[in-house]
Amino acid sequence: MTSTDATPVELTATDLTVTYPSKSGQVNVLDKLTFEVPAGEIVSIVGPSGAGKTSLLRCLSGLMLPSAGRVEIDHLEIKEPPAGLGIVFQDYGRSLFPWMDVRSNVELPLRSMGISRNERMGLVSSSLAEVGLESFEALYPWQLSGGMQQRVAIARALACRPKVLMMDEPFASVDAQTRFDLEDLVLKVHSTHGMTVIVVTHDIDESIYLAQRVVVLGGKPSTVREVIRVGLDFPREQISTRGNPEFGNLRAQLFSALRR
């Protein structure tokens, strides 16, 4: 952790419930989810497609109020996006602004944080360097590949020096090689800055590889099936970590939790 990094925060969800109005009354998507995300840990949330993962992340980030239950950050209930939030959305094509170049995209959130121009420039440059895009700052998002756009979204989050970084299926729509690179980027960023990280994914292997703790969602409506601790050592490495027998055990455990 470097000196400019913010202190990581602890998150808790208590009886978190989400229902949406539907034609036939109400549809219950998330039912009384309770789990915690310790300060400075990487926690992944895994669940099948349509399980309500995006809804859950919108609640955890304060973008949406749950229908019942609560989300707390360091024991304070949140009702709107907290300060020190970095967020990466499922669909990078929609969350980066195509009318701004890469630099302006990363800089925009900093403009309202009351920091000097020089300092902003420094933060933008160092964040872009961290994700390996220092020479692309004058390009526009649509001139970059999907993986590079997601790197820009990560740089934008990093530039704010977040206390908590939330990512919604960040790598679901990139190719396998890019996905591995981006996973390692997240691990590197976490070891550099030490912020709390929440990653939502539908990929069991990814949820294990990235996290210290996996929250498994399942059922209709979704409930917390299990919270599994991942004891694999850091730093992790795509080939050896995934080849570790422990990794196989965890995968089997997760798989049966999801199937149950």
Binding site: L63, R94, W99, M100, L108, S112
Partner: peptide, 28 residues
């Protein structure tokens, strides 16, 4: 796009900046 608005809210972009640099360009 609601994702665009979520992005603006998550990063606390103030109303005027949101209008001028996000809503207006997207609608343009």
């Amino acid at each position: 796009d609601p994702v665009v608005l979520d992005t603006a809210r998550a990063y606390h972009i103030p109303l005027w900046t949101r209008l001028r640099r996000i809503v207006l360009p997207q609608a343009s």
